[in-house]
């Protein structure tokens, strides 16, 4: 099997597992063994992947390009600003209360996930974030 074919097969397997786990998560209720199990499986898979890649040297920016001025480094601070704004507003809502006036992300999530499709989408989004953390 060529490298390209192997990559495709791995991606297809990963997507299949992620969709399957999301469908499973959608039919679970919090504080049950099922919910614990599906979340633990996802966390376990990412942990195994991180452990397998741990010895690989950490990626570093290509300093030669930067020194030549050939590449303008894209700005990353807007991501930091967005994250800070999200955390700040979450904290304001958490401490200000009541939830009816200032819903936190958790309370918004609880009401949105009455629909199983939304819960599956949220779980899939969380898995995609996990995959992004180990695939870089």
């Amino acid at each position: 099997m060529t490298e390209r074919a192997r990559r495709r097969a791995t991606t297809a397997a990963g997507v299949t597992v992620a969709v399957g786990l999301s469908a499973w998560a959608a039919v679970t209720a919090p504080f049950t063994a099922g919910a614990d199990a599906v979340t633990a499986v996802a966390i376990g898979l990412v942990t195994i992947e991180v452990a397998a890649r741990w010895r690989r040297p950490a990626p570093v920016p290509d300093l030669r390009d930067r020194a030549r001025g050939a590449v303008v480094e894209p700005r990353w601070w807007p991501w930091l600003a967005l994250g800070a704004a999200l955390v700040a507003w979450e904290l304001v809502c958490f401490f200000l209360g009541p939830r009816v006036d200032h819903p936190t992300v958790s309370s918004l999530y609880d009401s949105a996930t009455r629909w199983r499709a939304v819960k599956a989408a949220c779980f899939l989004g969380w898995l995609c974030l996990g995959a992004a953390l180990v695939r870089s």
Binding site: A25, P30, F31, V38, T39, V46, Y109, W126, L129
Partner: peptide, 12 residues
């Protein structure tokens, strides 16, 4: 942090 978010939203 990613693990905690998953546990908080989906398990607990």
């Amino acid at each position: 942090g990613w693990m905690w978010v998953g546990w908080h939203f989906f398990a607990r």
